[in-house]
Simulated scan of single mutants.
Amino acid sequence: MNNRSLTRGDGAAIGAALVLLIASFLNFYTLKGCSSDECGAGAWKSELFPLLPSVHLLGLIAAGLFVAARFQPEGRKVLGIGLEQWGAVLAVAAAWDALWSLFNGQEAWELGAGAYLSFIAAAALAAVILLSLRGLPALKAGLLPAPRPQQPQAFGQQPGQPYPGAQQTGQTGYGYPGQQAAQDPSFGGGAPQYGYPQQGQPQQPQPQEQQPAAEFAAFWFAVPVARPLYAEDGSGAPIAELTPGTWYLAVDQHGQALVAQTQDGRRGVLQDTGGIQRG
Rank of each mutant, 00 (worst) to 15 (best):
A181L: 07
Q168P: 00
F187K: 02
Q171S: 14
G188V: 05
A191S: 08
P192R: 06
T172G: 13
Q198G: 09
T169Q: 11
Q168K: 14
Q167C: 07
Q168C: 05
P185E: 00
Y174V: 14
Q180S: 15
Q180I: 11
P197S: 10
Q193G: 15
G188F: 04
A181N: 03
Q198V: 15
Q198H: 06
D184C: 12
Y194L: 13
Y176K: 02
Q171I: 06
G195T: 07
Q198W: 10
A191L: 13
Q201N: 13
P197M: 07
Y196K: 03
G195Q: 02
G170N: 08
Q180E: 13
G188W: 10
G175T: 09
Y174I: 15
Q179S: 14
Q193H: 06
G200T: 06
T172S: 12
Y174Q: 10
Y194C: 00
Q183Y: 14
Q198D: 06
G170A: 03
Y194H: 07
Y176F: 12
Q183V: 08
Y194D: 08
Q180F: 04
A181V: 15
T169M: 12
P177F: 01
G178A: 13
P197F: 01
G189N: 11
G170F: 04
Q183R: 14
T172P: 09
P177H: 00
Q199A: 14
Y196M: 09
Q198R: 15
G178Q: 01
S186M: 12
G173T: 08
Q199S: 11
G189A: 13
G200I: 09
P192L: 11
Q201L: 12
G190C: 10
F187I: 00
Y176T: 15
A181Y: 01
G200S: 09
T169E: 07
Y176L: 15
D184P: 02
Q167P: 07
Y174N: 04
P177M: 00
G189R: 01
G170H: 01
Q199Y: 04
P177Y: 02
G195S: 01
P197G: 03
G170V: 04
Q168Y: 03
Q180V: 06
G190H: 10
Y174H: 03
F187Q: 05
P177A: 05
P192N: 07
T169L: 15
S186F: 12
D184Q: 02
A191M: 13
G195Y: 02
P185H: 02
P185Q: 00
Q168T: 14
Q167A: 15
G170C: 09
P177V: 10
Q168S: 14
T169R: 05
Q167F: 04
P192F: 04
A181D: 11
P177L: 01
P177K: 01
P197E: 02
Q179F: 11
Q183W: 09
A181I: 03
Q201I: 12
G195L: 05
G190A: 05
A191P: 00
G188I: 13
P192T: 14
G189H: 13
Y194V: 11
G173W: 09
P192V: 11
Q199L: 13
G170S: 07
G170W: 06
Q193V: 10
F187P: 00
G173S: 12
P185V: 10
